[in-house]
Amino acid sequence: MVRDIDVKLLTDNIKEMCIEATHYLSPDMCAALKVATETEESPLGKQVLDSLSENLELAGKEMIPICQDTGMAVVFLEIGQDVHFVGGNVMDAVNEGVRRGYVDGYLRKSVVGDPIIRENTKDNTPAILHTEIVPGDKVKITVSPKGFGSENKSRVFMLTPADGIEGVKQAILTAVKDAGPNACPPMVVGVGVGGTFEKCAYMAKKALTRDIDKHSEIPYVAELEKEMLEKINNTGIGPGGLGGRTTALAVNINTYATHIAGLPVAINICCHVNRHAVREI
């Protein structure tokens, strides 16, 4: 049975989700920050983490965005194959939701219409829209406003099969160390391994939307996530990059099949304001 969904439903939800994501972090992120505050050894690092908890509380209570960089709106739509959109164009509906969310929600307009001419579009559109076709007749919407302090430190490495898992580890550490204090640690590190050039970047981005208290279902990948979190925290970069034991809160790795000749690895760095709102319609 085909199910009709009016695209207005996308607009209304995305508007609310832009505002929700920029003012409240998900419970897993809040919990991880609390734990870090208790375990951090550096006094200055602890002070930074305390400020971040205080900031989170204030953001929700007074409706001030957690961070002034309310990001470029990255929207994932996982569309059930039995869905039929009616009432307009999906891309237009997504952009309208972002426009209303950013204008009505007092969010910063951080998008320029052309990368070289650089004129602000004044409503934070266009969004970055990723779609996937999945079984069923529902649509899962994920809105993930992405700040660029950390986005700028993200990397893609086209490794070779000979580089193997050690090469992957090295790539992740290189990106994190290079990001250092610029990416507002404690970070969340999204990693994509395999696929093609663009597929691994997409996987890395999507890995950031996975709850940080959930590991990969693939045993060796789950082990790699734990090992890399420890290695990253051993760099000493710490909260705010001012030294300490909490450099990352989580490493989320997604994998996919790849070509016999390649081993693509993408590392999408996110700051401690790892925002995403998720709804199903």
């Binding site: 930074v48 400020s51 971040l52 205080e54 900031n55 989170l56 204030l58 953001a59 007074e62 001030i64 965005p65 957690i66 961070c67 002034q68 960089d69 302090g149 204090p181 507002c184 705010g240 001012l242 700051c271 401690h272 304001v273």
Partner: peptide
């Protein structure tokens, strides 16, 4: 000077 990155609500006060 460094201010705490990502503490925009707190700093706005």
């Amino acid at each position: 000077f460094a201010a705490v990155g990502g503490a925009g609500a707190l700093l706005s006060h």
